Computed example of a mutant assay.
Amino acid sequence: MHATPDAHDAHLDTRDSAPTSPAPRLPAAVLWDMDGTIVDSEPYWMAAERELVQSAGGTWTDEQATQLVGNPLEVSAQIILDRTPVTGTPAQVVDMLQSRVEEAMRSRMPWRPGARELLTELGRLGVPCALVTMSYASLAEVLRDALPDGTFATIVTGDIVEHGKPHPEPYLTAAERLGVDPGECVALEDSPTGAGSAVAAGVPTIGIPHIVEIPELVGLTLVPTLDGVRAADLLEIVRR
């Protein structure tokens, strides 16, 4: 005669046989722009540009400043030299601007909504992150120092690449350093030049427009904010 399981055993059997939800798919890596994406530093750059131009006796409008968003720094510096009374070399202009922005960021780190939270979650889940920025290494280090050790597995900056954004080299360099296929990653960008760079590198890209609009591109999905975006959402977003 077979024993009849009691209610407690039946409860355990039901619990043990309940299906479990599959783990969400995650990107092989997440490749982050910095200015305007992780931190709202574009106003710092604009203020530094205005201060520099005014000190030389010129004027610098918000419209002119907006046209520089996302550019390689020496490209922006040359535009300033061409259009204002500022003198010197592009490298000297970059040094003056970046030192001012570094000072401002050390005083107050202007986090963009949701960025730090998403970086923290990706780190907890073991998803490698790269910083891919046209700012130079000294400014990237200010951001790195404000985050937990190991937040970025690699950092690609504008002073170590031959071709800056919108060329694909910065994102291809990041993927190569991480040993991952660009097509298995997700890039996060806030500017047309940055989004163009990531898409040209074959990286599925999420655009978060901030100071400037980002035109539609094949391989690019636009969202209004990273606030509330979780690691498990990233691949779903780029598949839309």
Rank of each mutant, 00 (worst) to 15 (best):
L147K: 05
P27G: 02
P110M: 11
D35V: 12
L81D: 12
L125I: 04
E213C: 03
P43G: 10
L172Y: 02
M46N: 12
M96G: 01
G196M: 03
H2L: 10
L26W: 01
V186S: 05
R177G: 01
V199E: 03
T173P: 04
T66F: 12
V94A: 11
L147V: 05
N71F: 13
P24V: 06
V218R: 15
P204Y: 05
E103T: 15
V229Q: 03
L147R: 01
Q64W: 07
H210K: 08
A153C: 06
W60A: 01
I79P: 00
I237R: 09
I211M: 14
P128N: 10
P22Q: 03
T120C: 04
R144T: 13
L125Y: 08
L68M: 14
S99T: 12
R108C: 04
A56P: 00
A77Y: 07
P110Y: 12
P90W: 03
T225Q: 04
S107N: 10
L31G: 08
G179P: 03
S21R: 11
R177D: 05
A47V: 11
A65K: 06
A146T: 14
M109Q: 00
R100C: 06
P192M: 07
I211P: 00
A10I: 06
G228P: 06
Q92A: 14
P85K: 13
T87L: 12
P24N: 09
P22D: 06
A48D: 02
T14C: 03
G228N: 09
A47P: 00
L178E: 02
A47G: 13
P19C: 09
P72S: 12
G179K: 07
V161G: 08
T4F: 11
L178D: 02
T14S: 12
W32R: 04
V94R: 11
G183K: 03
P110A: 10
T154D: 05
L118Q: 10
Y136R: 13
P209E: 15
S107M: 08
E176A: 14
A153P: 05
E236R: 15
L131Y: 09
P90Q: 15
L68S: 07
P22W: 01
T84K: 11
E117Q: 15
L12H: 09
